[in-house]
Design a protein around this nucleic acid. Structure first.
Lengths: 248, 248
DNA sequence: GCGGCGTATTAACGCATGTGAATGTCGGCT
DNA sequence: AGCCGACATTCACATGCGTTAATACGCCGC
């Protein structure tokens, strides 16, 4: 639909794609589309993975539930993100994927995926990069939950989402879409909803940020990054993510 | 040195390799070896990755440090484990690797790695599987730190290491090597050393486990798995890991 | 056998975050 | 306009885990 797919923008953070490459991607994404309602599952733990999912529109999440119901959100996906490259090999999912907002996604079969990789080495490389970044994000989340305080953790999540959205051109000067509820932030950061509320309010009082109407307003990105100890190196952006630290 | 390399055993948890496959692996591992003293860094954050490292002997770890020195251990490697398949693409490491015990490892260059993959599709598949398992472990750690209590978290780590060691034939009936200090367990689980001590003692008092002399004795694996809510599905073992739940 | 160093153990105390539950707010549906 | 459901906010209180620091243990080198 769009002139430039989010996937193209996402991969362009690593390599510049040729027109032919873009054509290949566009074609792949047109094949098999799916629209999901907010909170609907995309695939659940235990099921056999059959497609690579590419988010075209909306936010999605990866999560895992313990036997007694405790839930950990493991990552968020925004437009352009791929869920589980090459996951076909596995017999069954060890976690679930679901929509956060309404989501439009493209399913790519193993055959199609293989074909893309063989057709365009440049795309293959970019997909590898994307996969490595996904893993690096997971590591950063582990670090965040293991070492950062509640305040730092939430600040870090906000920085990450803001920067990721910026690479696909989905931010304004100092704001971006932000459809997460406090309860979802809680499940993602290993905190309780009540404590997320306390903490977000503190950040607001201090003039760092504001979240309302499903939008995040970042008043002072530099300061937010500083308190979060946000180092964008793990996103492996070509520009080094240093343009992140916006000139004030 | 060994008749069967740990790497072969590790990959055999997913596919059965042919003699030719084993030959390919053996050859690759003989090329470039390195021995590291305990605690010595293998590669540090910021450096350019040039090799895939395969642990041949000893334990290693992946870790990340925040600006102010707080450290999170992100994963442990045991013999047969690969560190960072295909990481060549990236400009620089976003975390560090270091030895826990004395470590013997093999470095595989990008060219060699490429060659292996092209020579043997079966090995290529197995390497992919291994990579997917590594990521799944990372997700499980995120879940553990985010949702499990200290007691559950430590129990979970013990279960994981025991089961992983078992797939490479490094366990006895109810015990295995376990060279981690309480301080390292703390950095891996996001706890303090003092609290790890309290918790490990509690587990000992309850007759679940015993750690002494760099060995872990698991008195009751079933019970340990139960308190940890340990579900081996994320290790994606062919046997389903169900033989894990050892008959009493 | 002695001294030293890395590690484990113990203790007293504090606080960040959790728990449970009531109340407020706002946007959407009828 | 009014109701409803989802979400945010507030409050009182509880606790798991952190902090600091002193002490004990066990192995290694001399």
């Amino acid at each position: 639909m769009e002139l430039v797919h989010s996937l193209t923008l996402h991969l362009s953070a690593f390599v510049s794609l040729s027109d032919a490459d873009r054509e290949v991607l566009d074609k792949a994404l047109r094949k098999r589309a799916r629209i999901l309602a907010p909170r609907q599952d995309i695939i659940r733990e235990g099921e056999k993975p059959r497609f690579v999912n590419v988010i075209l529109e909306g936010w999605a999440q990866r999560y895992k539930q313990l036997a007694d119901g405790r839930r950990q959100i493991l990552s968020f996906f925004v437009p352009g993100d791929l869920c589980d490259t090459n996951v076909f090999i596995l017999k069954s999912m060890d976690h679930s994927l679901s929509a956060v907002t309404q989501v439009r996604l493209a399913e790519i079969s193993q055959r199609e995926f293989q074909e893309i990789i063989e057709t365009s080495p440049r795309i293959a490389q970019a997909l590898w990069w994307s996969e490595l970044v996904t893993v690096a994000i997971q590591r950063e989340w582990t670090t965040s939950i293991g070492q950062r305080t509640a305040y730092e953790r939430i600040a870090h999540l906000l920085c990450e989402m803001f920067v990721r959205l910026r690479t696909i051109g989905r931010t304004q000067e100092r704001s971006c879409e932000f459809p997460l509820t406090q309860s979802e932030i809680a499940d993602a950061t290993g905190l309780t909803q009540v404590h997320v509320n306390r903490t977000v309010q503190e950040m607001r009082r201090e003039g760092l940020i504001e979240i309302r109407n499903k939008r995040l307003e970042v008043h002072d990105l530099r300061a937010l990054m500083a308190v979060a100890m946000f180092n964008p190196n793990y996103l492996h952006l070509e520009a080094g993510g240093h343009e992140c630290i916006a000139p004030e």
